[in-house]
Amino acid sequence: MGLLAEVSGNVTAIGYGLAAIGPGIGVGIIFGQGVQAIARQPEAYGLIRQNMLLGFVLTEALALIGLVAPFIFQAL
């Protein structure tokens, strides 16, 4: 049996694909748990909302660092 499949193209695309897994799971956990928390305790809405925003910003930052990491390591 010969060659079944090969990977061609830019390797950094694979790197970003791998880097997006973690933030994807993280954003899912943040919003899932956040919505659940609001449903359980609607009176704590303001506090939950604030922490959801903070967690989302930090997690999204990781995804965007993954986006520019190839350029950073190209320069180094």
């Binding site: 909302r49 604030q50 925003l53 903070l54 910003v57 930090l58 930052a61 965007l64 660092i65 520019v68 950073i72």
Partner: peptide
């Protein structure tokens, strides 16, 4: 890059997170 992310996070937190 890191400074920009931190400042942008601060900006969005000050604008929307209170």
């Amino acid at each position: 890059i890191v400074l920009g992310l931190v400042l942008a996070g601060y900006a969005v937190y000050r604008r929307h997170g209170r």
